[in-house]
């Protein structure tokens, strides 16, 4: 479903953020990407739907080459959902309109159809009664669940999560993770940048560990938690599992 081959990316002429990253996510697979801050994990996931351009290598998404100038990027992006660290709901739109905007403007759905779809998904994340509110009237956890519903409304073939819980107060993390766990169990293809190792051990198939722009470790979940091979991964794990 998602293929990254020898991806290289620089900021400016000298600073290389991604160094020869190669990995893939199969259909229905859940892959967790972790690593210390500044390791390039967020950049990597943003390259998948070309929010960040790459300078070397190639990325193939659902059979379409992302970094091909001929690719219709808006159309491609509409097929993968993305959830951001800071939710990024559109503050001037009601919750239901947040869910409808792209359905109508990108997929060309009729308003009624979009609303029906949106309400169904809001119901699914348990926020149907908040449909008429504005984002700023919801808690962080609720906003992030809306953001997930907004992405799902586009009927994505895969979902990208960029640290979906790291801007949340601790008591709100589980409500978001629960939604993500359900999604994983239903067979959604997911690439998740997160430090939530509980989530990883529960539903991930594979874990990727990144450091300084490199993929240091790319292993099945059991192998990763059982016996991480690299020093750096071991150190990182011991740090975040201590608490």
């Amino acid at each position: 479903m998602i293929e990254l081959r020898h991806v290289n990316k620089w900021y400016g002429p000298t600073f290389q953020v991604l160094k020869d990253c190669t990995t893939s996510v199969a259909k229905g697979e859940v892959v967790v990407v972790c690593g210390p801050s500044g390791s390039g994990k967020s950049t990597l996931i943003k390259c998948v739907n070309a929010l960040e351009p790459i300078q070397g290598g190639e990325i193939i998404l659902d059979g379409i080459k992302v970094n091909d100038p001929k690719t219709d990027l808006p159309k491609l992006r509409a097929r993968v959902g993305m959830v951001f660290q800071h939710f990024e709901l559109f503050p001037h739109l009601r919750i239901v309109d947040n869910l409808c905007l792209a359905q109508e403007k990108v997929l060309g759905r009729k308003h009624d159809e979009a609303v029906a779809k949106g309400m169904k998904l809001l119901d699914r994340v348990g926020l149907k009664e908040h449909a008429k509110k504005y984002p700023a009237e919801l808690s962080g956890g609720q906003q992030q669940r809306v953001a997930i519903a907004r992405a799902l409304a586009m009927d994505p073939v895969a979902m990208l999560f960029d640290e979906p819980t790291s801007a949340l107060d601790p008591e709100m993390i589980s409500e978001v993770l629960d939604v993500m766990v359900d999604l994983a169990r239903e067979g959604m293809t997911m690439m998740v940048v997160t430090h939530e190792m509980g989530f990883a051990s529960k539903v991930a198939h594979r874990v990727i560990f990144m450091d300084q722009g490199e993929i240091v470790e790319d292993a099945l979940k059991a192998d990763f938690f059982g016996k991480p091979r690299s020093d750096r991964a071991q150190k990182f794990l011991s740090k975040i599992l201590q608490h």
């Binding site: 943003k46 739907n49 929010l51 808006p74 159309k75 491609l76 992006r77 509409a78 097929r79 993968v80 959902g81 993305m82 951001f84 660290q85 800071h86 990024e88 709901l89 559109f90 503050p91 001037h92 905007l101 792209a102 403007k105 990108v106 997929l107 953001a147 907004r150 992405a151 586009m154 990208l160």
Partner: peptide, 25 residues
């Protein structure tokens, strides 16, 4: 910055992103 990225990630074109997301705010 995430607002523009979120709109882009949803498949909105640059014109649509400005019209429906950035300019109203």
């Amino acid at each position: 910055r995430g607002q523009k990225q979120a709109a882009t990630a949803l498949g909105l074109t640059t014109a649509q992103t400005y019209r429906y997301v950035l300019l109203p705010m």
